[in-house]
Each structure stands twice: as structure tokens, then as C-alpha cells.
């Protein structure tokens, strides 16, 4: 039903345009940026920052990202199953138990291997 999305599309345009236009309009109304020197530096409690902020970051964040991809896809699989659950009945339950069971095994492995710990000793 693509026509359902027409209002949403228009709304999206509105929602994006409203803040952007306000931002641009007020750029001309408010005093011009006169910041110089330290005001333009990134805030680091009054001390010139050391090094660039965009360095390599801890690998744990990437692990979380990977785990997210895995688990969120599972959740997305669950959505259509949940919608059709009334039709699928017992068959649906059993299949989903198998599915979730596999997921749980993976989860337990992750848990035990420590991938879910934020601080590794």
C-alpha cells in the first residue's frame, strides 16, 4: 500500500525542513558568530586538548556492534512470527522454541566466553 506512505513522506520533508529552515532564518537574525581563539577549540576543561579525538577506539564497541547485528536480526525474525502466531499455533511455538533455543545456546556461549563483559580483566 504505497499510497499510505505519501503522507509520511510529506511529513518527513516537513519534519526535516522545519528545524533546518528555522536554523537558517535565525542565522540572519541572531548576532553573527564572533568567536575567536579558545572559544573555537574543543572543550577540555580549560586545557588545550592533547591529540586528536578521532583515534582508534576500544575494540569492545565493535564487539557490541557485531552482537547487535546478530541479535537484532533475530528479533526482526520474531516480528512476523508474532503477527502470524494465531495461525501457526503449536507448530509456530515448536519452531520458535527451536529457533530461540539455538539463539540461547549462542547466547550462553557468548556469556561464558566473556564477550558480554564490558571490562575484561
Amino acid at each position: 500500500m504505497p499510497e499510505h506512505y505519501i503522507p509520511i513522506f510529506i511529513f518527513a520533508v516537513l519534519a526535516a525542513a522545519f528545524p533546518a529552515i528555522t536554523l537558517i532564518i535565525f542565522q540572519y537574525i541572531r548576532p553573527a558568530m564572533r568567536a575567536v581563539g579558545a572559544k573555537l577549540e574543543p572543550y577540555e576543561c580549560g586545557i588545550p586538548p592533547e591529540g586528536d579525538a578521532r583515534g582508534r577506539y576500544s575494540v569492545r564497541f565493535y564487539i557490541v556492534a557485531i552482537l547487535f547485528v546478530i541479535f537484532d536480526v533475530e528479533v526482526i525474525f520474531l516480528f512476523p512470527w508474532a503477527v502470524q502466531y494465531g495461525v501457526l499455533g503449536l507448530y509456530g511455538l515448536v519452531t520458535m522454541f527451536v529457533f530461540l533455543g539455538i539463539l540461547l545456546i549462542g547466547y550462553v556461549w557468548l556469556y561464558r566466553s566473556g564477550a558480554l563483559e564490558w571490562i575484561y580483566e
Partner: peptide, 28 residues
């Protein structure tokens, strides 16, 4: 060292970050 099991992760270490907290910080 980020001890992730079964992986040599010494090469995956993050850059050491130096952060200044204070003298102008809400909670120092």
C-alpha cells in the same frame, strides 16, 4: 590487552586517550 578468548587481541588495542578533567569541570 583486551583478553578476548581465542584471539590475539594485543594488536586490537585502542589508542591510549589522554583526557583532562578539570580545572573547569562540573565534578572535580
Amino acid at each position: 590487552h583486551v583478553h578476548f578468548p581465542g584471539m590475539d587481541t594485543t594488536v586490537l588495542g585502542a589508542d591510549e586517550i589522554i583526557i583532562n578533567m578539570g580545572p573547569q569541570h562540573p565534578s572535580t
